[in-house]
């Protein structure tokens, strides 16, 4: 079990990093989302992977026996919701950027930081 989770985590994180380093806007964002999911797996496995019993106290008992740790599951759920919100936002952002610029190459979109034209003084910017 631990080896399966380890290999899965490693694969997802490696794929995520590879895609996140891409110049293609969508690949970059999908990569970041995958990276987030890989790290969610790490978070999930931090509660140990030794049992499949759900953490519900049976009737007429007062303690848990040999149950899974519920806390990392709650943490993962929160992290998933947050990363879902961020993914939604980033995809909308990407669509808008591609609509406005007509380009999905990150290196071609340099509106916020235009490349230097002069080594002593930066170029004058047009104010709105």
């Amino acid at each position: 079990m631990i080896w399966a989770v380890l290999i899965a985590t490693g694969t997802v994180v490696a794929t995520g990093i590879y895609l996140a380093l891409s110049r293609d806007l969508f690949r970059c964002l999908i990569g970041l989302a995958l990276l987030g999911n890989g790290i969610n797996l790490v978070l999930f496995s931090s509660g140990r992977l030794n049992t499949q019993v759900p953490p519900i106290i049976k009737q007429a008992e007062t303690t848990l026996h040999n149950a899974a740790n519920a806390l990392p599951q709650a943490l993962v759920l929160t992290a998933i919701v947050i990363s879902f919100a961020l993914l939604c936002f980033s995809l909308v952002l990407a669509v808008r950027i591609i609509q406005l610029s007509g380009n999905d190459d990150i290196l071609a979109i340099r509106q916020a930081e235009p490349p230097a034209t002069d080594s002593i003084k930066p170029a004058l910017e047009e104010e709105p």
Partner: peptide, 8 residues
Amino acid sequence: LKHLDATL
């Protein structure tokens, strides 16, 4: 586009 680029 400038704002969205910065946001990204």
